[in-house]
Design a protein around this nucleic acid. Structure first.
Lengths: 278, 278
DNA sequence: AAACCGGTTTCATTATTTGAAACTTGGTTT
DNA sequence: AAACCAAGTTTCAAATAATGAAACCGGTTT
């Protein structure tokens, strides 16, 4: 019997070994994880790959523009091609562009910080954000990742996953304790998720950062599949959970609108992208 | 003799066949190029790969989060992992974060649209942008690509490449004629680049879009390596080339500041990224 | 019910990846 | 200046993974 290592459950949860491509991407992640340009040697000391293997991966990725090599400093960093591809990803994601205006409206209505998030593997990935006062804060916000088990958006998304996916996602949570309110076990989390399923929405009760609370609403398709989540964040100095709960109706309504548009978005060439304007 | 297909010249210019990884990334690009979610079949009809091969690439990429599969519509689009990686790319690129405040300042000073660009393969990739009036326009701006031979930023960057790289980059230009001023041959371009080298800066004389003109300045290291380029864009109704030329000093100064900071940026753990805040 | 279609799996063949070891390069020490 | 060292690069036979023609499946259409 050949490979049976294929991902069994849902398509969530990174598989650490699909062939050469998987390994190469693992290397790419490692470089990105450094958070700064790295030398080949540093990479090597962290890596499980033998020297020549790693070397060739780095070469290939650099050739491909997935890594950028700085000949002056002899360092590698994530490459420009990623920026281009991510641009496409953001553009095409049914959720992000569709949700944009609704997030604007929501943010104006509530006057608090609003987040749009999706699940990437077992982490929360923030797709878009509106800050309390200021207009928009810029791209470097989108793309940020956070833990799922101790954020409002993370929990509401997990609450509505199918059993198989939920299982693998929960298994991958670290349950690092950030504050005295952080859920610190899979069991505690499962209980909370059950509550959330009951209510249809969830809170972050200072579970990630002291003083920071939020109310979160999942964005689900008609069939109940998780598309993403919305949240309104505030501080304990400005309001409390009851105060945030007042936003539930508008959150629910916003989520519903987003769902509706995202579903109706049957893409018969909705915009022919011409040679990029300046 | 085994492979000699390795890239001979500079590390610019995508190589279309480095092994399995290269092929997989080719598929990724194809999906991104569609500009909308695609079905497997559509992809297949465009692809040179035989059905099972393409199928497995798509599987692998999906497993890896580089593609996202929508089970409802049975379509693929560029995945979330790209957004995360691009976030890292943007963060780490020495240029983008260093240049940010300077671009703000420049934009305020001149009151016109400002671009920061880099070369990706033989194309211009816009890394950051400030619009005339409005504050910031959002991430979906960064990541856009444009032609190099008919934009200010493209030409000034090409002008200062080393000979080998310049050669391959020029060869890859399409010389599509957008306006009556578009340079339409490699020879015309080479002449223009020579002028630019002389002056140290360049213009876009309505070469890409009628009525749109710009003045562009390369960002070079002390050793003369091209880091990127800056430009100030305007319209023929508001000003003319002579008017734009007035911005040359401030552009030169801004570029110099960015160079200085980018070079001094010896990265001894300049920011220990803690568990991402919300 | 037969043909069709998009998508998925099989399996022997083929091509690629793999990594221990050897080598090169540039800088440092004896 | 010879010996040394560390970082990066290349070699090459063995091990592994990619390949794609063909067959298969579960719906839908004729």
């Amino acid at each position: 019997m050949p490979k049976l290592a294929r991902d069994e459950g849902g398509q969530m949860g990174r598989v650490t070994g699909d062939g050469t491509v998987g390994k190469a991407l693992e290397v790419l992640d490692q470089v990105a994880a450094f958070g700064r340009p790295v030398r080949f040697g540093e990479l090597l000391s962290q890596s499980d790959f033998p020297k020549p293997t790693l070397y060739r991966f780095v070469q290939t990725l650099t050739n491909q523009g997935m890594l950028a090599y700085d000949p002056e400093r002899q360092t590698y960093s994530p490459g420009l091609r990623l920026v281009r591809l991510a641009h496409a990803a953001w553009d095409q994601s049914t959720l992000a562009p569709v949700a944009r205006p609704h997030i604007d409206a929501l943010s104006n209505a509530v006057g608090e910080t609003v987040h749009l998030a999706q699940l990437d593997a077992a982490q929360v990935l923030y797709i878009d954000k509106r800050n309390a006062g200021k207009p928009v804060e810029m791209y470097s916000q989108a793309g940020k990742v956070g833990p799922a088990y101790c954020t409002g958006v993370g929990k509401v998304m997990m609450a509505f996953l199918d059993d198989a996916t939920a299982k693998t996602v929960i298994e991958q949570q670290s349950f690092h304790v950030f504050t005295e309110h952080t859920l610190d076990s899979a069991d505690a989390l499962r209980a909370e998720l059950s509550d959330i399923r009951q209510n249809g929405y969830g809170f972050d009760r200072e579970e990630h950062e002291p003083g920071i609370i939020c109310v979160a609403m999942p964005i689900l398709t008609d069939t109940g599949r998780v598309l993403g989540a919305l949240s309104v964040t505030s501080t304990t100095s400005r309001t409390n959970l009851a105060g945030l709960e007042a936003y539930v109706p508008i959150l629910r309504e916003t989520a519903a609108k987003i769902t509706r548009e995202a579903q109706n978005w049957s893409f018969p060439d909705y915009h022919t992208k011409e040679a990029t304007r300046i």
